[in-house]
Design a protein around this nucleic acid. Structure first.
Ligand SMILES: [Mn+2]
Ligand SMILES: [Mn+2]
Ligand SMILES: [Zn+2]
Ligand SMILES: [Zn+2]
Lengths: 136, 136
DNA sequence: ATCCTACGATGGACAGAGTCCAAGTCAAGA
DNA sequence: TCTTGACTTGGACTCTGTCCATCGTAGGAT
């Protein structure tokens, strides 16, 4: 998935230096950075980039389906570049680390029709919580 | 579960008029309120109750295990008085309504050991998202 | 290569959600 | 009734995120 920049250009996303560094920060590892963390990393390469621009770029990447928003707690949203392979999250209750996990089975299958209350359900998000090895 | 007040008194929770109205607001059938919604309803019965007091009381009820915090999106947390029967949530993507649901099976069983990465997992939260009948 | 202009970037004000604190009040035991 | 530590209050403050007027520039047109 390292051709994020390429895909964006092909989709007609106007490429500015600011958008490039935001995309580069997200590309690569499957991290789960907050908007301010993305801003901090982007600012290492482009010191005058503004918070508003980072928020704008992240919002567009989410609209384009290239990044997913993850809100594991009531704190800052995290931005997940692993948008193409469905997965769930494992969150450390102590340090807040977020890991991708791939559970077996489909949680939607566990919700019988009489528990759907007329909703048209489009997705099921699972968050596993516990302590990571460093926080035992 | 209408003896919430009774349980709290038995557990030595100092009963003030403010705490009483907060507990009474939650004890009814209006589940999944935000802190400000709780404050608004409490203020109908006790006009001068402050936001800080509502936050304090909610935080203590959560610590006591009598109320659960639910953060379904990046917005305000909701406070769920249904803390004694394990359940999951069905959320309307349009209007934000939250309903309790009781899926079959245990989501923890869907996470094989090689997907636990050394974590000590204590719970699995499932959020089903979709459109409610009024928002089709 | 230069020009144009619509789209993007900027920073500061603003808003929503929640926390913190010093000062005042009161529940409940003695 | 008295006493006292726990509770409440309002406002200031933090954190996260949005909005907006103005300025700058990417990239198509010439
Ligand atoms: Mn992820
Ligand atoms: Mn519930
Ligand atoms: Zn940890
Ligand atoms: Zn709805």
């Amino acid at each position: 998935m390292s051709d994020l920049l390429e895909r964006l250009r092909e989709r007609g996303w106007r490429m500015t230096s600011q958008r490039r560094v935001v995309a580069e920060v997200l590309d690569g590892d499957h991290v789960h950075l907050t908007a301010d963390e993305v801003h901090a990393r982007a600012a290492q390469r482009l010191p005058e980039i503004s918070r508003a621009t980072v928020y704008n770029a992240l919002g567009e990447l989410v609209s384009l389906g290239e990044v997913k928003e993850v809100s594991t707690d009531g704190r800052a949203k995290r931005y997940d570049p692993n948008a193409h392979r469905p997965h769930q999250h494992l969150v450390c209750s102590a340090c807040g680390t977020v890991r991708d996990v791939h559970p077996t089975g489909n949680p939607l299958a566990d919700l019988p029709p009489d528990q759907r209350f007329g909703f048209t359900i489009s997705e099921a998000e699972v968050t596993y919580r516990g302590l990571c090895p460093s926080c035992v």
